[in-house]
Design a protein around this nucleic acid. Structure first.
Lengths: 346, 346
DNA sequence: CTGAAAGCGCTTACAG
DNA sequence: CTGAAAGCGCTTACAG
């Protein structure tokens, strides 16, 4: 029943040429007369020949395929990063296999195994929340597969990485809030075992110190990553005799939780209390008041992560220099942190 | 420089067995002593052998890989559908290659070419907005690659499809608005060359007719798919001497644009005007007022699309029956269409 | 229960 | 400019 696939043999026979010559013609290798090449291409289209990439990969020893593992594709940061990776792959004629870890380190390990089995040339990875140490990645290297970490990296795993200017981003966000006249800033952070959350916290502290401000210890809350946690924490802080008058969060969902708490406490945003989010998720500009946030330029980040492979690893195989690229993020100031001039729009 | 990959030959040599026997042991084929199988597995782990899936696929003639093409992965409907497809693939030990058409039919064609080159066993596709006819899919079939369409299908291309109960969803939504006391319903639709938009329109009309209501022709506007278009249209309709008192949209972004127009016209939602969206995007419950919408159960839809391949195509190759699965969607009634009892929450 | 041999569809030295 | 042969890493009849 299963009709056989049309191969390069069929093509060669049709044309009365040798298989190896046809292969060269198809691949645009030198030493093939241009007319012959055109004839081969024409006949290929005619008999509906499709090159079998997998067979070629097997012979060539490289798959021309990258793998990417992210916690979740349904977060804009990651789907945009993937779009950037895709773009780099298309430009460089590579394929991409996308895997999700769903924030679980065992699923992450399975994904890595799969990508090894698939013989990918390089794995781009943003670690799951659960992953405290990226030892698995060493196994990948043993298989001569390259690794580029992006966004969520393990600092103990030495290797290429592409990240945001996390410290600088929160530093600038905090400074902008101080400039708006907020005096008692609180910081709602993430789990400190992840570098990026640590850095975001440090940026906040730097801005505070530079301004000569004092922030009570209990105004800095780590490992508070969900909307619900942030809501609870904000409720508690707002009930204090001396509550904060501004919140800096490390995610937009946190910011949303905080805003809910502020409204519930009968206070106004940004008049009484200012709020700053992180990631610039689409909903930040859809709600009222719109949420100030930090755009991570995630598509560019993804693109650059893939380009570490194409520009660097692929081109100079001897050079074992480790690359670190920093992608600048942008401050997006909207209503939620703009005390000086309150505008309301949908 | 490039250390050679560890192959089944190395494994066989280490164990003093034949290559073919080791292969059988690894694949759990019958006719291998259990102790031998265990020994092989143990040694494989020991010398860090990783099975080369691509080589096996080449020999076996099937890639055990599915390909999925969606317009955009950064829309929740699609990323959730992909999660469902992934789940089905994992359960059935298949791999998945994800491609985006970015709503362009030429990119879509390239993606299809890529998947053919990758020798996938089946392509799951939701067509791009630009694709008026899915002739390319016929080419896929010529290559003995199966096709399952989901969500956005070409009705002229005969084949398996998994879709929502689009007609029923808008029918129910419209009925719920009528029950809330809205009298003059308007429908802001999509491009009619896509079945699903046509069906959504038909559902609306059925509800109207059943209620014995009259809807003026200019209250039904097709091909108005963006937020901006919907905004403009709503502005125009609201300026009429006899404006609508409710809007049914076929996307949440449209609903948002409509709400903006209502607010701008100095009217209140849902008191003066009701709004119903479609797709149940996360932001619908984040804004005030929250938007009533239709949950498409997209993860289940994706899962079922993949299961058409696993349950049906893979298992009975002789049986050429064409499958159509309908995934029921759920009405999610929130503030924007609830006139009887107005609740406000963040 | 175990193994020798052919072949999946290509590409890459090598030879002419 | 053109071609014959080997081999990428597996699996699958077939034979014993």
């Amino acid at each position: 029943m299963s009709t056989k696939r049309i191969t390069i043999y069929d093509l060669a026979k049709e044309l009365g040429l040798s298989v190896s010559y046809v292969s060269k013609a198809l691949n645009g290798k030198p030493g093939v007369k241009e007319e012959v090449r055109q004839a081969v291409l024409k006949k290929a289209a005619e008999i509906n020949f499709k090159h079998n990439t997998q067979a070629a990969n097997l012979r060539r020893g490289s798959s021309r395929t990258l793998g990417v593992i992210v916690p979740q594709i349904n977060q804009n940061f990651f789907s945009d990063a993937i779009s950037g990776i895709e773009k780099a792959c298309t430009e460089n004629k590579h394929n991409l296999i996308i895997c999700q870890s769903h924030e679980k380190s065992d699923v992450e390990e399975t994904a890595i195994e799969t990508l090894i089995h698939q013989n990918v040339d390089c794995i781009l990875i943003s670690l799951s929340k659960e992953t405290h140490s990226a030892k698995i990645l060493e196994q990948v290297l043993e298989h001569k597969i390259n690794v580029v970490q992006f966004d969520r990296c393990d600092e103990n795993f030495p290797g290429h990485r592409v990240i945001n200017d996390n410290e600088d981003a929160t530093y600038k966000a905090a400074k902008s809030m101080i400039a708006e006249g907020y005096q008692r800033l609180a910081f709602i952070g993430g789990p400190l075992h992840m570098d990026l959350y640590m850095n975001r916290k440090e940026g906040f502290i730097r801005a505070i110190n530079e301004a000569g401000m004092h922030v009570p210890d209990h105004f800095i809350v780590d490992d508070n990553i969900s909307k619900e946690n942030a809501f609870q924490t904000a409720m508690k802080l707002l009930a204090l005799p001396e509550p904060p008058d501004a919140f800096l969060a490390i995610s937009d969902l946190q910011a949303l939780g905080i805003m809910l708490a502020i409204t519930e406490s009968g206070l106004r945003i940004p008049h009484d209390i200012g709020v700053f989010g992180y990631a610039n998720e689409p909903f930040t500009e859809m709600i009222i008041p719109s949420i100030s946030s930090i755009d991570q330029n995630s598509e560019r980040l993804g693109y650059q992560a893939a380009m570490v492979y194409f520009d660097h690893i692929l081109k100079n195989k001897e050079n074992h220099e480790v690359i670190t690229k920093i992608i600048e993020s942008d401050l997006i100031i909207r209503s939620s942190s703009k005390r000086s001039q309150t505008t309301v729009s949908l």
